[in-house]
Design a protein around this nucleic acid. Structure first.
Length: 343
DNA sequence: ACCTATGATTGCAC
DNA sequence: GTGCAATCATAGGT
């Protein structure tokens, strides 16, 4: 700014352009012979334009010459005035950027997945929860879990190193541009506001690159997750003995086929599966039985007989009288069977 | 290759 | 949190 005010005071010196020591003998000759201010300004402008076509050394020399020129302050102030006017029109275009919802979504997701934010918790916790829900043998889930964690850590590491690289590049580039503009502000009018705007533009550009990084990181996490979930979906049928144990419980508790937490734990232990798998099994069984009782009739009869026989054996062993097989008071409909086990 | 059975997941209601 | 209902995806049988 002080540059500009200084230049304004020099505006009165337009007349003294006769001796233009700008290093071009041709123009000097022309200026000297013509001696007209208008022509002089034209020449100087032409020289300024010609700088871009010259070698660096030549240009430096010419720049220095221009900087030392008596007319420089005057021209500078004129440029300042013009600039002031154009800045007004630019100001309308300039908009303060609101927080991008897209980038906020990505940030939230990366935070939730444990990619950004603190090292512990987040993703590993999510993986642990997922692994816990997965069921299956504990070894399997722990292998999947650690695999998932390792992959997530890899993504996390790449993300952070890339982000750091971008941030470094951004600050380096910003510094470079700012230095360049400061340097240039000696020869052309550049207000701090303009520098600020340029910095903002650079930051916007880099943040759009960052958004791409965030986007691709999110994609990678989603793919990893879906693979992990797919792995969980890979199921194996329970072994025959486990199914038998579960069916026995189900049909002997047909009036109320809702095992308690303790019962579930016991069944899980007996069958070599998790409690949640027991819950899943009962959930599936109840709904499928209810939907098509006819289809399960045979199975129901089979297990009813089995239970009855077992009970009879137990009671015989205990030298006791007959035992009730299935107390059925208003739960799921009991199968129709004769005491000897036939339909 | 197709069909059925079955374990797992998801969305919803309570 | 639990159970229901619908659905997905795979295992296993033909």
């Amino acid at each position: 700014m002080d540059d500009q005010t200084r230049m304004m005071t020099g505006l009165t010196g337009l007349g003294g352009l006769q001796q233009a020591d700008v290093g071009d003998p041709d123009s000097v000759r022309k200026q000297q012979s013509l001696g007209q201010p208008q022509q002089d300004i034209g020449d100087i402008l032409q020289q300024i334009m010609a700088i871009t076509d010259e070698s660096l050394d030549e240009a430096q020399a010419r720049k220095h010459a221009l900087n030392c020129h008596r007319m420089k302050p005057a021209l500078f102030s004129v440029l300042c005035e013009i600039k002031e006017k154009t800045v007004l029109s630019i100001r309308g275009v300039q908009e303060e950027d609101p927080p991008d919802p897209q980038i906020m979504r990505l940030d939230n997701m990366l935070l939730a997945e444990g990619v950004s934010g603190p090292e512990k918790g987040g993703g590993s916790a999510a993986a642990a929860a997922a692994a816990a829900a997965a069921g299956g043998s504990p070894t399997d889930s722990s292998i999947e879990h650690s695999d998932y964690r390792a992959k997530l850590a890899q993504i996390r590491q790449i993300y952070h190193s890339e982000l750091e690289k971008y941030e470094q590049a951004c600050s380096e580039f910003t510094n470079h541009v700012m230095n360049l503009l400061r340097e240039q502000s000696r020869t052309r009018p550049i207000s701090p506001k303009e520098i600020e705007r340029m910095v903002a533009i650079i930051h916007r550009k880099f943040s759009s690159i960052q958004m791409q990084l965030k986007q691709s990181t999110c994609e990678a996490v989603m793919i990893l997750r879906s693979r992990f979930l797919d792995a969980r979906r890979k199921r194996r049928n329970f072994n025959k003995q486990a199914t038998e144990v579960l069916n026995e419980y189900f049909y002997s508790h047909l009036s109320n086929p809702y095992p308690s937490e303790e019962a579930k734990e016991e069944l899980a232990k007996k069958c070599g599966i998790t409690v949640s798998q027991v819950s899943n099994w009962f959930g599936n069984k109840r709904i499928r039985y209810k939907k098509n009782i006819g289809k399960f009739q045979e199975e129901a009869n089979l297990y009813a007989v089995k239970t009855a026989v077992d009970a009879a054996n137990v009671s015989a062993q205990a030298s006791q009288a007959n035992s009730p097989a299935t107390p059925n008071s208003g739960g799921y409909p009991a199968p129709c069977y004769t005491p000897d086990g036939r339909l």
